[in-house]
């Protein structure tokens, strides 16, 4: 009899412990549906599903967005929108610049052939070359400014990535564009002088290098 009482006592003593373990706060609650109706466009969208009435993680201060956007948020959204517009233009006009510069180099080559390499010195490419120089220079400057002046609302770390190579190639192209303006003027100023040949060759070489750097800068964006 005492043995039976001892057994019963022992078994009963474990029942509350086991019940507590099973009834821990971990136990899933019945599914609760969250309303999806009447939400404004900025309000969180919620779908119902299995019961997720448990908390395993510490609550995060940044889990929920602020109820009303602050001045900082509005400024940020403005900066992001401005950046997007400027960089989209930067990309679109960048292709136009590449096309314009390629045309400038090709027509420049024809102009050189015509003027200095036995082409008859008709001058038929001069106006076109000048026009292309003006358009490609204007485009190049505009595209560069759009890229440089675009606001950066999110901090960027400097690293060796494709955008860094893009910038390096564009810096080379910028140096080339500036050099071409100077070389072009110096070439014209040495009309009839022997030293003009050297400036013509330099103008030609820098033209090709500038086009190459600009092309490379664009191509890096594809990787």
């Amino acid at each position: 009899m005492s043995r039976t009482v001892a057994l019963l006592f022992l078994l009963l003593s474990f029942v509350p412990v086991a019940a507590r373990a099973a009834g821990d706060d971990a136990a899933p609650e019945p599914a609760t549906e969250t309303s999806q109706g009447a939400l404004d466009s900025d309000a969180p969208v919620v779908e119902s599903g299995p019961s997720l009435d448990f908390d395993l993680l510490e609550p995060s201060a940044s889990s929920e967005p602020a109820a009303a956007p602050g001045l900082e948020d509005v400024e940020l959204e403005k900066a992001v929108a401005a950046r997007r517009t400027m960089l989209t233009l930067h990309q679109g006009l960048g292709f136009a610049t590449l096309a314009s510069l390629a045309g400038t180099v090709v027509v420049g080559q024809f102009h050189m052939q015509d003027r200095y390499l036995g082409g008859g010195d008709t001058g038929r490419f001069k106006l076109l070359h000048t026009g292309l120089v003006v358009s490609s220079s204007t485009l190049f400057a505009s595209v560069g400014l759009l890229g440089l002046l675009a606001p950066t609302p999110f901090k960027k770390e400097l690293r060796w990535d494709t955008i860094t190579f893009h910038r390096i190639f564009m810096a080379i192209a910028t140096a080339g564009m500036l050099s071409q303006v100077v070389l072009g003027k110096m070439t014209e100023a040495r009309e009839g002088q022997l030293s003009q040949v050297g400036f013509i060759r330099a103008h030609q070489a820098v033209g090709y290098v500038t086009l190459g750097a600009l092309s490379a800068g664009v191509v890096t964006l594809f990787f």
Partner: peptide
């Protein structure tokens, strides 16, 4: 993603 501009 290995590209600062893309991450921004």
């Amino acid at each position: 993603s290995g590209n600062a501009n893309r991450d921004v």
